[in-house]
Design a protein around this nucleic acid. Structure first.
Length: 487
RNA sequence: GCUGCUAUAGUGUAGUCCGGCCAAUCAUGCGGGCCUUUCACGCCCGCGACUGGGGUUCGAAUCCCCAUAGCAGCACCA
């Protein structure tokens, strides 16, 4: 019992401890609703989730849609679906466009505290002053003046670009990015799909407001936010609020798939990709379609952890995690790629049975009936050095070549003979009992045939013996469509 | 350029805070073997790393300095 306990404990402690998390945590995942979630999002989503499971607490999904230019109305639902698929313990969901009034209210307070001012300078002009560490004229306005201007902003008294609210920071800060950064701006167009608004908060303001309002204790996000964290501290200081604990993980390079939302959308629109779940894309729905399990994604992300070093994402590692999950459950079938029909001379007609899973007899068998001719992968027949092979679960076959043309003859049932001859054991299908199967891979389609029984595996991951794991994507009159998962 | 951050095998990761038990962990990958009616799974063996240079110390992957490399930010994006 002790052993079990300690083992469990060790297993849990894959991630480093979080400071001040002993009494539980409140954390959040805060995506932009611009498209479906991809592997990059999965890291933040899974890491936060793991800590909440470790320490207990609430997990807030906060949809950050304060920039109407970067909102895809369909993405709200996609994000929720994707997180549901990932299997996270989200406890609360908030959408920032529903909360504009809260941000306005807090901004009014902040102006009252002298922590922010309304700036009506030309943008370029302000930038120039900022770079010279000089205050713009608006900075010294009285609180009363700022209230008047803020009210004018909210009541459409300004047009886009004419006024913004800036946070007072340190104009002498060595990093220009810290100096009096903006908190609200005016946007005339495009219209926000969810709310009628004219004044929008910038990310740094709405994030602080919400993290405070929602009681967020710990924030885990990418290091691209390090500068934002520093900026946000100024807002916390103005309000006198408690600052959450931050962790910024390093950049994760992902090769082999498309991740850019705009590039994906472009490709979908021009027909390059079939949709958001096209397997050449790095979206979670594409992984799902290929037969990668959500648990494997989570495990792979946890194994990567929260290090601040830049890393390259390894598909091999993800596949290894997935194999652990999928191997025990995937039924086995034969798939013959690029099939050639062969006739085996002097062979008895017989019926054979093969296990659905080699480690679990209880799952049953599939039945294959041999009546003289079978399909095998063309590649197996092309090998000139091959004098014998064994049709798996059937019998041995000798190959003689007459001016390159193979002549195949039955060579007994003995498995021991096949072993002694080091004959490969290959998959095959009865000519009379097979259905077309297209195997889709990221590199392209492979035409082949498979066992008709595969029809019953729609939506599941199975293993095509000697080929790899595949997900059965479609079953229809013209046959089967399977997506290649991994070896 | 400015402001920061980081540097352990092919990849990911532990160890770094509080120097010795680290001739450096685990996983993945690769090579070999066993098992097996799959090139899967399982098991066994092997390969492979502390970025470089100084310094502190009896002792450095661990602390300090310099160099190099990589990354992030420098938006009225998130």
């Amino acid at each position: 019992m002790f052993a079990a306990l300690s083992e469990k404990h060790e297993h849990k402690k894959v991630l480093p401890d979080l400071e001040g998390a002993e009494n539980g945590v409140v954390m959040r995942f805060a995506p932009n609703p611009s498209g479906p979630l991809h592997i990059g999002h999965a890291r933040a989503a899974a890491l936060n989730d793991a800590y909440i499971k470790q320490y207990g607490g609430r997990y807030i999904l906060r949809i950050e849609d304060t920039d109407p230019k970067r909102v895809d109305p369909e993405a709200y639902e996609m994000v929720v679906e994707d997180l549901k698929w990932l299997g996270l313990g989200i406890t609360d969901t908030v959408t920032q466009s529903d909360r504009l009034h809260l941000y306005y209210e807090l901004c009014t307070q902040l102006i009252g505290r002298g922590g922010a001012y309304v700036c009506t300078c030309d943008n370029e002009q302000f930038k120039e002053l900022k770079n010279k560490k000089i205050a713009c004229p608006c900075r010294d306005q009285s609180v009363e003046t700022n209230f008047v201007l803020w009210d004018k902003m909210l009541t459409h008294g300004f047009k886009e670009g004419e006024a913004s609210v800036r946070i007072k920071t340190d104009l002498l800060h060595p990093d220009p990015a810290m100096r009096d950064f903006p908190a609200f701006r005016i946007l005339d167009a495009p219209a926000h799909p969810k709310v009628i608004a004219h004044v929008y908060p910038l990310m740094n303001f709405s994030v602080v407001a919400d993290d405070h309002l929602l009681g967020v204790t710990h924030v885990i996000r990418g290091k691209d936010h390090i500068a934002n964290t520093r900026r946000q501290r100024y807002i916390y200081d103005h309000f006198g609020w408690k600052v959450p604990v931050y962790r910024h993980y390093g950049r994760m390079g992902i090769e082999g798939v498309v991740l850019s939302t705009s590039q994906m959308r472009l490709g979908i629109n021009d027909g390059t990709y079939t949709g958001w779940d096209d397997i050449r894309l790095g979206t979670l729905r594409a992984l799902a379609r290929r037969g990668i399990s959500p648990e494997a994604v989570r495990n792979a992300m946890l194994a990567i952890g929260i290090g601040d070093t830049d890393i390259s994402f390894s598909w091999d590692n993800l596949y290894a995690e997935n194999r652990k999950i999928v191997d025990p459950v995937a039924n086995r079938y034969f798939f013959v790629a690029d099939p050639v029909t062969i006739v085996i001379h002097a062979a008895p007609h017989l019926t054979t049975h093969a296990l659905l899973h080699p480690a679990d007899e209880k799952r049953g068998v599939r039945t294959l009936v041999f009546t003289g001719a079978v399909s095998i992968p063309a590649a197996e027949l092309e090998r000139k050095d091959r004098a014998m092979f064994r049709l798996k679960d059937l019998f041995n076959v000798t190959v003689e070549r007459d001016r390159g043309r193979p002549h195949l003859t039955y060579a007994g049932d003995s498995l021991a003979d096949a072993r002694a001859a080091k004959a490969p054991i290959i998959q095959w299908l009865p000519v009379a009992d097979q259905i077309p199967c297209t195997l889709r891979t990221q590199e392209g389609d492979i035409a082949g045939v498979c066992e008709p029984a595969v029809r019953s595996e729609l939506g599941k991951v199975i293993q095509f013996e000697r080929v790899g794991f595949v997900k059965i994507d479609a079953v229809n009159d013209s046959g089967i469509v399977a997506y290649y998962t991994h070896k």
